[in-house]
Amino acid sequence: MRAVTVIPGVSGSLRLLDDYPEPASDEGAILVEALAVGICGTDIEIIEGHYGEAPPGTDHLVLGHESLGRVLEDPTGTLQPGDLVAGIVRHPDPLPCPNCAVGEWDMCRNGMFTEHGIKALPGFARQRWRVQPRFAVGLHPALHEVGVLLEPTSVVAKAWEHIDRIGQRAEWQPRTALITGAGPIGLLAALLASQRGLAVHVLDLATDGPKPALAGALGATYHSVPVDQLDFEPDIIVECTGAPVVVLEAMCKVALNGIVCLTGVSTGGRTIDFDAGALNRTLVLENNVVFGSVNANRRHWDAAADALARADHAWLGSLITRRVPLSDYARAYSPGPEDIKVVLDFTA
C-alpha cells in the first residue's frame, strides 16, 4: 500500500512509498481505510529534520497524526464497518507513569509515551491503518468532510477543560475570551468559546484572506492590532501563536482573576527586554493564572467529537483551505500564505 514517510532527523527525506507493508495485527484489532490526514506545523518540522522518532526496528516514520478513516473491520464490535473513526495520537508509556496509568497520558511525567506519526508509532498517512478500540474515536456520519479536524479540536477541548477547572478556585463568572492567533487551533478555540456562550474576540495580524470572515461567522470580534492596544481586559486568553511578544502581552493584558492558557509553542532563541518584576507583581496581586497545555486524552477527544457534531459543518469546512490528492503529496506539505488547514485526501 502507499504511505507518506520520512527518515527522522534527515531533512528532505519526504517520500511516498508504493510498497509500504500492511498494518500489523498487533497495532490494533480495528482495520481502517484512510480518508484524509490533516497537516500542521509539527509535520513540517519533522520533514525539516528537527525531530521525530521511527518505530523500533525501522528507520522510516509514516507521517500523519490528524486522522480520519472509515472502519473496514472490527471483530471487537466497538465500531461497525463503514463507521467514521479517528485514531488518538498519543499512547501511554509502558511503565506506566502515575498519569498514564489512569488514562491521563497527555500529562505523562516520564516522557516515555509514543505518538502516531511523531514518536515511535507509524502515523495515519497510509492507505490502511489499525487502531486499538480504546484509541478509536467514532464520529457522527455528518462529519465525513470535516472529521479530520478532530485532533486539533481535542487539543483545545483539553485547554478549555483545564481553564474551567482552574476557574473553580473561586466564584468566577467569565464573560470575555480573547483568542490570539487565527490558525486552525485559534479558530477552533474560538468555536469552543462561542459554544460556552462567551463574548469572543479573535486577534490576528492578517487583514486579508478568510480569517476575519471565519471569526465573524462565529459572532466573534476580529482585531488586527497588538494585544496591548486592545481597549478591554479579557477574563480568559487562549494564546495560540507562540510568538514571544504576544505571549508576554497576553500575560499583562488579562483581567483581574484572569486565566491565560498557552497553546502555541515558541521556537526559542529570541531575547526580549521586558520588566519581569512588573509582570510578577501583576500576576500575584491580581490572582492571575498562566499555564501551558498540549495534547489530549480520551476524555478530550470525546468532548471534541461532540463539539464538532454541534458546530456549523459548513463553517468547519471553510477551515479546510486546500485538499490535496495523495498522488500530489509534496504540494500538501508546502504551506501557502492563505492556508488555514491543508488536508491530504486519500479518496481523490
Rank of each mutant, 00 (worst) to 15 (best):
V342W: 11
A24H: 14
Y20C: 04
L192T: 15
V102T: 11
I30T: 09
M107R: 10
A54E: 13
Y51T: 11
L283I: 13
N297I: 07
D275F: 01
Q127H: 15
T5H: 11
S334R: 09
L72R: 14
G258C: 04
P98E: 05
V6Y: 05
V148T: 12
N257Y: 07
V71R: 02
D312P: 14
V85C: 12
G264V: 11
S224G: 06
G12W: 00
S13E: 08
V62Y: 03
D26C: 10
P226R: 05
S266Q: 10
R310N: 09
G138D: 10
G336N: 12
V62Q: 03
V260D: 01
G269L: 00
Q80G: 13
C261W: 01
P75H: 01
I46L: 03
T114P: 01
G41H: 02
G269M: 00
A29D: 08
C40L: 10
P56Y: 06
V343I: 13
A36V: 13
P94E: 04
G12L: 00
C261K: 00
Q127A: 14
T267G: 10
G49H: 13
V200Q: 01
P337A: 04
E161L: 06
I272F: 04
I185Y: 06
F135H: 14
L14D: 12
D74T: 07
G242E: 09
S194L: 05
D26V: 08
D275K: 02
P98T: 08
V202D: 09
S67W: 03
A255Q: 13
G209P: 15
D273G: 10
R128Y: 14
V62S: 02
A243Q: 09
G38Y: 04
P152T: 09
V225N: 00
G64K: 05
A314F: 12
E104D: 10
P55R: 03
S334W: 05
